[in-house]
Simulated assay, not measured.
Amino acid sequence: MESRRAMELIDAHLDGETLSDADAAALTEWIKQNEKQADDAFRRIFLHSYLRQRIQTLGLLPSIEGETTQPNLRQLDGGFDSPAPPTRAYRFTPTIVVLIFLAAILGGLMLPSVNSLPRTRRSAPFAYEGFDYAPYDAPVVENEWPTEGGLDGMNGGLGFSGAWVESGNLVSLIEANPSDHPWTPHDMRQFGMLGYSDRFGGILASSGNQLRTSAGPQSITSRRLDVTAAPASLLDGDAIGADGSSLWISFLTQSFDSSGDGRYAYLQLGQNNTGLRIGKLRTAPSGNWSVAAVTDGAELNLRSSDKPSGEGVLIVARIDFRPGAEQATIWINPDLNQPPDDAQSTLRLPTPDFRLDQISIAGRYSTDFDEIRLGANFRDVTPIAEKPASP
């Protein structure tokens, strides 16, 4: 579809005309093709909204009670709802075009440049890994854990500058159905795939399979970030961590059980073995989900929650980069409907000054990880799945 035709269809939709199923599907695919086309579509929508608001302000068009000027759109991934036009929608007819220019002459209305229009940024992580790779299809036996392969060379997701690299003496695996590989009746993961639903029924969007760390010492699975995919406000040279910025991270995780005593499996953020570790930590004897700062590979400032690591959880973290020490705030199983307050956080700790250009998942006690997201705000890393329509 040509851009001109796409804009015509958007205008028609905003004017209350019903798009055909074919046109609605074609327009949805055009928007999804690339970021520029998505931005062009949203700018067009807000141009209509801006002009209508200004015309009403000048008194040239009365507001109609109960009228809506919002486009009848689903989220970008869902597309256009072709059968249902906006309620009592406003139409940009040739007469209204004349009114716009009349307003410009009589009321001093200056039509805005595209850059001055309200901008909308679709909530989305700049880095995402859902581990949608082919699963490991052989029996998983602790004493025969694979030593080659794993995720090495796998290059899915988005926001990374290269593929996953395995550097441990054992490798991680891709698990598609945890009930296929229960080591013992006590393996807490056998009840299903990782997922999360909050107390209001909001369900975290998820897809694909999940990563499983090794059961013995040790798997280390690392991947470089494409830092240019992050917002410019987060960047400090060739890494993430500009003072005054905040980075949000989320992921799902669950361990074989809640044993501590040196057993570990964690997500590490940082570079040069300095940064932040979140997960099941070797220095947490309780075996509960914990967080610690890392300097030269050593864990310090350990904080432990009351959540056992054998329990599947959604972990959300915010790193506030500051001059000197950074501040990390962790929430376990937060509500998804709005950003949580700091007062509701599960754990908080200062960390050494660090920058971020890669993530690593290390383990020596088989633990599953999934849905890793990095973003500039809470909504970027906690998308809520659309509920299926009622029959």
Rank of each mutant, 00 (worst) to 15 (best):
V98F: 11
V98Q: 14
L99S: 13
I100F: 09
L102T: 12
A103P: 07
A104N: 07
A104Y: 07
I105C: 09
G108T: 03
G108L: 04
L109H: 05
L109F: 14
M110I: 14
L111C: 08
L111D: 09
L111E: 05
V114K: 11
N115D: 15
S116K: 12
S116W: 11
R119L: 13
R119E: 12
T120W: 15
A124M: 13
A124R: 12
P125R: 01
F126P: 01
Y128M: 08
E129C: 03
E129D: 12
G130W: 08
F131R: 02
F131T: 05
F131Q: 04
Y133V: 02
Y133N: 02
Y136R: 05
P139A: 15
V141H: 09
V141C: 12
E142W: 12
E142C: 07
E142N: 14
E142R: 15
N143C: 07
W145Y: 09
T147A: 15
T147C: 14
E148A: 10
E148I: 08
G149L: 08
G150R: 01
L151S: 02
L151D: 01
L151F: 11
D152T: 05
G153F: 11
G156L: 04
G156V: 03
G157C: 04
L158W: 14
G159M: 03
F160Y: 14
F160E: 03
S161F: 06
S161L: 06
G162F: 09
A163F: 07
A163H: 11
V165M: 10
S167H: 14
S167I: 14
S167F: 11
G168P: 02
L170A: 07
V171M: 09
V171A: 06
L173D: 03
I174M: 09
A176S: 15
S179L: 09
S179H: 12
S179I: 06
D180W: 14
P182F: 12
P182R: 08
P185R: 11
H186D: 14
Q190E: 11
M193N: 13
L194C: 05
L194A: 01
L194Y: 03
L194P: 01
S197W: 06
S197I: 11
D198K: 09
R199A: 15
R199H: 15
R199S: 15
G201I: 05
G201Y: 11
G202K: 07
G202F: 14
L204Q: 03
L204C: 04
A205F: 13
S206E: 13
S207M: 13
G208E: 02
Q210N: 06
R212L: 12
S214D: 06
A215Y: 10
G216A: 12
G216P: 03
P217D: 10
P217A: 10
Q218K: 06
I220Q: 01
I220V: 13
R224Y: 04
L225Q: 00
D226G: 01
D226E: 10
D226V: 01
V227K: 00
T228C: 04
A229R: 01
A229H: 03
A229V: 01
A230F: 00
P231F: 03
P231I: 02
S233V: 08
L234C: 02
L235Y: 02
D236K: 01
G237C: 06
D238P: 07
A239K: 00
A239P: 01
I240Q: 00
G241Y: 00
A242E: 03
D243M: 04
